[in-house]
Design a protein around this nucleic acid. Structure first.
Lengths: 236, 236
DNA sequence: GAGTGGTCTAGACCACCCC
DNA sequence: GGGTGGTCTAGACCACTCG
């Protein structure tokens, strides 16, 4: 673990332990630098991590402060998950996946545009339903170019595509662009997700990118509204 | 404008002009440092800004690349808005606000917890409907502690609370924690937002913070699903 | 005016990529 | 093995806060 990550982790623990209370000023960058034997920029990087995670606020000329959050919020933010696939998000819980479709087709104009490929190229066309504790939570419509992500099998689909990409293919997933909307389920979706009449769904449209900037996935996930929410911390 | 912001801006323009195409490698940090007469860290900061905004991907050992995006996505990301109130988001469009309620009350247990105040303290209780081009878009339920944000008037409500806080009160808004959900409108909301039967709403629950970490606003915004979406770029 | 965090410099070493 | 970006150092100046 890097120095600034280590310092950030220690600060996070101290906040969680209640050593620094909401509203408290945390030690000065200069002083923490001395205590840990590192230069000021390294401390700054550590504190900036906590700012990004929503635990700390900084103010030039005044110092850095523990944000005044509920206990619940602190707990959630303390384990900075950020972004991951379904399997990782619900890690350590009982999940399983049902595959409704797994084919190779030509992409539509829109999908080709999102993935920056030709309409003559081929993409996997995948539809999956994900279960958490035997309750259906989300139906995912996924398109991925086979050139970029070869060798997908039904076993991979039922486990985690992301784990396969990073593990077997040694590619690095770096970023995702998302649009979140509200919508209504189709009759088919109502059936698969066991949605009662009149309940909406939360839709997430996503394009995901490798660390060389190439898009490798375009997906639409439609979540049961009573089991899903999308959380974000934004810092100016 | 700071050096790294200036360099980031020039790079962004160059990408937008098509000088660097999707998939292209952008110049090395070392070389750009020479060209602009700045040290490497300053260039790195500039490029990291573009990564955060979703335009560029970086890979240690290999370089930095223009992400392969649609034209539409590039255009949207080129004007990095990030986070702002309603008034600023739709700046330059025709907006207006209707105020349904403006009172001062004691907060509920939940609101007191979110704002880290006592139940005996007082908060503004505000309900507003916001219009874009004479169409209702969102109904906002806002609670703010009067100790922290004194002097709110009906004029402020009909304009922009955020502008008042930063302008008149000289306070700095720094971050917001948000939870996005799908839901159904109440009959009253259907009326105010002119929502047809069976259409859902997109709900955003938000706690907003000043730069000393104190929460100054707890709000729930319920948007017409056909007129709103929530966009985000997440970088690992 | 003393002290804070923000920016910037010049230089070093390291992890990682690609040839 | 040559070259990339990531981290880290030591030091400087600046914008800003606060008593």
């Amino acid at each position: 673990m890097l120095k600034y990550q280590k310092i950030a982790e220690e600060l996070r623990q101290a906040i969680r332990r209640g050593e620094y209370l909401p509203g408290d000023k945390i030690p000065l960058e200069k002083d923490m630098g001395k205590r840990y034997g590192v230069c000021r920029l390294t401390v700054k990087r550590a504190v900036d991590l906590l700012v990004k995670q929503g635990l700390v606020a900084k103010r030039r000329g005044a110092g850095a402060f523990v944000k005044s959050l509920d206990g619940q919020a602190v707990k959630e933010l303390s384990m900075a998950h950020q972004f991951s696939g379904f399997a990782e998000t619900y890690r350590a819980q009982k999940i399983h996946t049902e595959c409704l479709r797994f084919e190779i087709i030509n992409p539509s104009v829109e999908v080709a545009a999102r993935l920056k490929i030709d309409e003559e190229d081929f993409v996997y066309d995948i539809i999956r339903v994900r279960y958490l504790n035997d309750e259906p939570v989300v139906i995912e419509y996924t398109k991925m170019p086979i050139q970029l992500i070869p060798g997908i099998s039904i076993e991979v689909l039922l486990d985690s595509i992301y784990a396969y990409i990073e593990g077997a293919l040694k590619l690095n997933i770096q970023s995702a662009h998302r649009i979140v909307r509200a919508g209504m389920p189709t009759p088919l979706e109502s059936g698969y997700l066991r949605i009662e009449d009149g309940m909406p769904i939360l839709e997430v449209e996503q394009t995901a990118f490798l660390d060389d900037g190439r898009p490798f996935e375009y997906s639409i996930s439609r979540h049961r509204a009573d089991k899903s929410a999308f959380k974000a911390v934004s810092v100016r």
